[in-house]
Design a protein around this nucleic acid. Sequence first.
DNA 1: ACAATAGTGTCTGTTAGACAGTATTAT
DNA 2: ATAATACTGTCTAACAGACACTATTGT
Lengths: 240, 240
Amino acid sequence: MQETEADFLQIYDRRDYLSPLVTVDAAIFTFHNGELFVLLTKRSEHPEKDKWALPGGFVDETKDTSIEDTVQRKLKEKTGIEAPYVEQLQTVGNNIRDTRGWSVTVIYTALVAFQDCQSYVENISEASWILYSEAISMDVAFDHREIMQAARERLKQKALYSMIPAYALPEEFTLPELQACLEVLIDKPIQKKSFRRRIEQANLVEEVGQRPASGKGRPSTSYKLKANAKGFNFIRNLEA
Amino acid sequence: MQETEADFLQIYDRRDYLSPLVTVDAAIFTFHNGELFVLLTKRSEHPEKDKWALPGGFVDETKDTSIEDTVQRKLKEKTGIEAPYVEQLQTVGNNIRDTRGWSVTVIYTALVAFQDCQSYVENISEASWILYSEAISMDVAFDHREIMQAARERLKQKALYSMIPAYALPEEFTLPELQACLEVLIDKPIQKKSFRRRIEQANLVEEVGQRPASGKGRPSTSYKLKANAKGFNFIRNLEA
DNA sequence: ACAATAGTGTCTGTTAGACAGTATTAT
DNA sequence: ATAATACTGTCTAACAGACACTATTGT
């Protein structure tokens, strides 16, 4: 007699098989004072205790129905907000990255506005914004340095042809702010005119009023992203 | 007294923790007779027994030191060759895609030359090239239809700005062949001239001799990819 | 000569880079 | 008025799309 799938599942028990450890990590970036920051947490448990690490953790089968749930849960824990831009970056799996054995980590990249989570991050002890340039020369846990670098590189590439820099800013932003953020992400100055032309021609932003002349010089106009900006890709890249 | 990492690892046993099932799947494509094919295998075991599925399987901790090892091992098993283009696509993890419970699959996309593995694939019973257009309307296992579609879409996008279509052809190919392959991947005819200009200006191919006038019309020149073609990205995309 | 396929010349349109110019604010 | 910052005009270069043209093969 033929075994049915129901029969099979009756007997099957995942506990009978050894599966790699599965974790989810997030490289969360923001832009503040003309610089790029990455969110790191201090590990309170072994392994790699007391080292800085990307926020992340195990899938909690009682709380999460998918790895997106896991990453959103971790993001909320560490930043207090829901990130407007979260993208799966890469998955790393091998038997050397974690001393506990075969380990698989699903890595996400996220961008958040500094202002949206500054107070939350300041008031929890486990996480801090670290200057990216400093973070990559620190002795971080596991393979997290390589992961930060891969995430950084992906953001740079996407910044060349999409509006993702806007997600590292508050919902309302000015074009000079957006340009500064873009320039930091791609690590290269760009022409004001080129920048504004692209955005204007593609119809990606919507005016929301003047900025109240907060400093020196002519005040700038505030914009927010239009709905079509999400997922929009320019057909031509900026120069790398 | 402080617990050291060595102490911790002494006590730690992965078997004490329940981790999701981890599998690796590959969406392997090729171009043949002007059409796009995907490699599918017939499942011989529960769950989803007897359905077509993407080739893949569990990480074998005795054979594999990384997930790249796992995917290369699977690729070799099913195609008999090492694929010239293998890229991690995406990781899907949730508690509904597999009836056995929480399951994570790391998905790769690969391109291979039909001629390089035709005889191998014909002679194993577990795998066959299926027309992509038919594959997506078949009742395939798990979430493999969505995965095939995601892989297809990624290839399309990359074909707009890279030389990946060449990896679905033998090492030596003609420009008309490459153009036909590109057109199938992006699902749109393109101008001969635009196509050839891009490749020539970027200096991506190298002549390897005339093709022996195998049919009607003027014979075409054979080329192979230069080393710099690997990873090369055009700064401007073809029209989507 | 003709059909078929390979490959080129050249025009146009779009868009990024460069850079000089104008506009609006605070002091 | 001046400094500082925001924003625009306009030229050029690069490159994809369009399409007509020439080249080389088999019959």
